[in-house]
Each structure stands twice: as C-alpha cells, then as structure tokens.
Simulated assay, not measured.
Amino acid sequence: MGGAERSARKRRQNQTTGTVKTSPAAKSSPVAAARKSGGNRNPMIVGALVVVIIAAAVIGGVIYTNSKKSATEGAAIAVKSVDLSLPVTREGAVVVVGKSSAKATIDVYEDFLCPACRAFEDSYSGQIESKLNDGTLKVRYHMLNMLNDRSDPAGYSTDSANAALLAADEGKFLAFHKSLFGSQPEEGARGWTKDQLIDLGRSLGLTSQTFADGVRSGTYDKQISDAFQQVRGTDYLQQEYNGQKAFGTPTLAANNKIIDTSDPNWLTALTG
C-alpha cells in the first residue's frame, strides 16, 4: 500500500469514528462542577447562622425579661424583724414613730416601689433605728403612691402603702415597712398582690380580720392618693430635676426644709 493510499484510508477511518476533541473543562463531571459552585454557599450558611443566633438571643431575652417581670408570682415576702419597742401612731396617711421627747423630727417621703427609696433604706435604716431607739429621733413616714402606674398590673404602690398603714394601726409598721423594702419588686414588673401582703401581715402576727379586710378593700387608698397630691404641690418639697423643680422620692425634710442626704453625716448633725 503506497503512501497516498495509506493517507486516504486514514481519512476514511476518521470520518467513520466521528472523533471529537473536548476541552478539559468539558470533561468535568457534574459533581466536580457542583463542588466548584459550592464555594458560594458559605456566605449563605454564615448568614443563616447569624439569623438563628439573633433569634435565639431575642427569644432568650424575652423569656428572661418575662421571668423577672413575674418574679413575685407564687413567692412569699421575706419577713424582716425590727427589735424596737416604740410608740407608733397613724395620723391620716402618715405614720409617726418615736418618742414625743425626741430632739429631732424628720419627715420621710417614700414609695414602696421606688428603687432610690430602697437604696436609702439600705444605707440609713440602721442609723435611723439606732436614733429612734435612743430617743433622739422621731420619724414621720409618708408612704406615697407616686409610682402607682409603674407596676404591672398597676396599683402596687397604693396597695402596699394601704397595707402598711393598716399594719401601723396594729403596731407592726416598722417590720412591715422593712420587709417590703427588703423584698422590693422591680419597677415595671409584677408587684405583690393583696393576698401576698396579707400573708406577710400574718407572718408578722397581723391575724385580725380587720387587717385582711382592710387590705382587700383599700381602706386608706383615698387618703394615700389625697396625701400625695398635697405633697407634690408643697413648695419646700420641690427639688431640681433636669433643670426643673419637681417632687421626687425619697425626700427627707426637717423644719420645713429638705435634708441634704448627700452629706453622710446628715443624721448626726440633726440629732447631735
């Protein structure tokens, strides 16, 4: 077979087999192609994880907030005792504690829901009790309902103040007062219910039907509200708040002047 004949034969074989050359890219399998495109999935996965984490944080925050808001539900108010034997009288919505011969008399304006009032009690209740005990101090407690709308449901400031006045009628004001500040609900959260206030009274020895009925019916509610309206309009009780004069709790006064409690020696100066 000559060279020309061999060349012709080879051409005929190529035409019969239909051989087509393919590029390396065309030889890639579907799996390989998918793996190559898989690089774009990473941002999607990270984004999905971020959404999940944020959602979990939000849900966790809601659960935590709700648990704090309902912290008083099903609980009992811890009893705080006060080892003092002093005259305690109620004058309308004011509770007067101490001997009539005391050198100094102070007026204390508080709300059982007020966090600043609790801070004041934590800092000074021991010193005040000592001065009450040695007969140099008399205290007029004004339990107000300034934050009545700041509990959920609203009304705890009035309910607690009313219960404290009823406790004063039966000589248990100081222990009741100390117990409520010791177990103060959070502002904006669920307060103690009337039944829980009655249970605290029982724990302190207030077992009369008069006390329980008075808590439930709100015996002194109107007096408390009227007293707050009078207090908030009293000129010498106004203080500067953000450039404006207003009334706030706690406020302490003596001889119709506000006491500056930023001075740590204010009580000694008053009774010394």
Score class of each variant (00 low, 15 high):
25 A>I: 07
229 Q>W: 15
250 P>I: 09
250 P>C: 05
180 L>P: 06
246 A>D: 10
94 V>M: 13
240 E>T: 15
207 T>D: 10
122 D>A: 12
205 G>H: 05
137 L>F: 04
77 I>T: 09
246 A>F: 06
201 G>C: 03
20 V>F: 00
268 T>M: 06
230 Q>M: 09
82 V>L: 02
256 N>P: 13
52 V>P: 00
217 S>K: 14
158 T>Y: 13
206 L>F: 04
38 G>K: 06
22 T>C: 07
136 T>M: 03
109 Y>I: 04
6 R>A: 14
55 A>T: 04
163 A>P: 00
125 S>D: 12
10 K>V: 14
93 A>K: 07
123 S>W: 03
269 A>L: 05
270 L>A: 05
157 S>A: 10
87 P>D: 06
113 L>A: 03
88 V>G: 05
204 L>I: 14
67 S>F: 03
133 N>E: 09
38 G>V: 11
68 K>S: 08
74 G>P: 09
36 K>V: 14
28 S>G: 14
211 F>I: 06
7 S>P: 11
26 A>D: 13
5 E>V: 07
33 A>G: 14
16 T>Q: 13
256 N>Y: 12
259 I>G: 00
101 S>L: 02
67 S>A: 11
7 S>Q: 12
46 V>A: 07
267 L>P: 03
31 V>Q: 12
201 G>H: 00
117 C>N: 00
52 V>K: 01
56 A>W: 03
192 W>R: 04
233 G>L: 06
56 A>N: 04
234 T>F: 06
232 R>C: 04
257 K>G: 11
30 P>L: 05
271 T>L: 05
38 G>P: 11
58 V>H: 06
37 S>K: 03
177 H>W: 08
10 K>L: 14
257 K>P: 15
263 D>P: 11
33 A>E: 15
42 N>F: 15
102 A>S: 11
269 A>I: 07
199 D>H: 13
132 L>N: 08
271 T>A: 02
253 A>D: 01
122 D>Q: 10
76 A>L: 10
248 G>I: 14
239 Q>V: 13
101 S>M: 04
14 N>K: 14
221 D>Y: 15
171 G>F: 00
183 S>P: 09
89 T>K: 10
236 Y>D: 05
39 G>W: 06
168 A>Y: 01
217 S>Q: 10
18 G>A: 10
17 T>I: 15
36 K>P: 15
264 P>L: 09
120 F>K: 06
108 V>P: 02
136 T>E: 08
108 V>K: 02
35 R>S: 12
41 R>C: 13
253 A>N: 07
